[in-house]
Design a protein around this nucleic acid. Structure first.
Lengths: 210, 210
DNA sequence: GATGGTTGTAATCATTTGATTACCAAACTC
DNA sequence: GAGTTTGGTAATCAAATGATTACAACCATC
């Protein structure tokens, strides 16, 4: 998480591109599509603002790429889980796979922001399509019934919201929060608590600190 | 787009205030906090832009009021359900209550946007607090266990996302969407389909419904 | 029927921000 | 090592937007 800034100044475009999308994922996840600025993304990626817009054309296209990559990771993660050790029940494998995505808060929160922008003429259709892709994977590749799939999705959406609202921030001060989170992330709370403190810092700070 | 303007030109402040909050709920629900402009809200309320910012101080405070009123309605709705006919099981009563809120898309979507903005220094805490209020109601007033409460919330969050992503827009063209929505809104799909077409229009249209 | 408070607007400002342009420099190639 | 491609920035622009100010119309009540 500290290795971004000291990279070589000049970098092949693809590599830089991936870096920017990564940074953008975090920024969009924190601030939302409209709330994020191309400059925030640029700073987080350690690059100049004009560079990010020239590389992606528009902020909208950048967001679409972030959305696309997030979905890609989610689907890949699920496919891995489906293909994994059949000794442990499938639903649990999927749950764990989803839970692991949690460590990169940006991915799931960017998705959530996209899912709330269905009214947008270009983000809306993309988000719908992406959501359906996930549903279809659960049905067709994981072999779930409609009820199983929606139950699983429901749990995921709640996890996203708990993540998005940064419930962890009140974990120590509010016993209700502890109870709630234990119920949302059964058995996994210790992991989430140890991996997330680093993420509590506001998005931009660690990025351009020269 | 014609019904707003014909109201009386002059109005007691409280009434106008409620009208603006109502319009703002729809606008914020559609565009998100950062994506919505005070001018959009003003237009939707049939009032001038400076008026809305003078009445609420800042856009942020307006959003906080929207958030507050949305939570108020949600909680009130649940309390009504809790106090209602004990012949039908409580969880079903609550589900129906939640479902009815669906008809005012703005309420639930404004909540969702707030829930995704936990990183914001002022919206974040308010959203956390609101979410916890809902959880506590389910636990303390509805008497649910932690597991029951989170299950119920999970279903709600999925419903919100399906609503936010405007899944209905693809209802006629995609059979998968039909299956998904039937699973998310069991037995109630006919209602949602008949009540929402009017809502498909861009934000502004209704807002002053006597 | 003046007076003063309330409801509202038009005009305008200062910032923010996505985007553009012009330019620079590293690296590969010959 | 000259020339070209590629990776990158500084400076700047135009539009959008939240906020402010000054002013106008309504309405009570004395």
């Amino acid at each position: 998480m500290s290795s971004v800034t000291d990279k070589k100044l000049r970098m092949p475009a693809d590599e830089r591109r991936a870096l920017i999308i990564d940074a953008a994922t975090t920024v969009f996840g924190d601030a939302g599509y409209a709330g994020a600025t191309t400059d925030m993304v640029a700073r987080a990626a350690g690059v100049s603002q004009p560079y990010v817009v020239r590389m992606f054309g528009t902020k909208e296209r950048l967001f679409l790429e972030v959305l696309h990559r997030a979905l890609e990771r989610l689907l890949a993660s699920f496919r891995e889980a489906i293909a994994a050790d059949p000794a442990v029940p499938l639903e649990r494998r999927l749950g764990l796979a989803y839970f692991e995505l949690t460590t990169d808060r940006g991915i799931l929160l960017s998705l959530m922001h996209a899912f709330a922008l269905g009214a947008d003429p270009v983000i809306g259709p993309a988000a719908r399509c992406g959501f359906l892709d996930v549903y279809r994977l659960l049905r067709d590749e994981a072999g779930m019934t409609a009820a199983q799939a929606t139950d699983f999705l429901a749990g995921g959406m709640l996890a996203n919201v708990v993540l998005g609202v940064r419930m962890l921030d009140d974990y120590d001060t509010d016993p209700t929060v502890r109870e709630l989170m234990q119920s949302v992330f059964p058995e996994k709370l210790d992991i989430i608590r140890s991996s997330h403190p680093a993420l509590r810092a506001p998005a931009a700070s660690r990025a351009a600190r020269d």
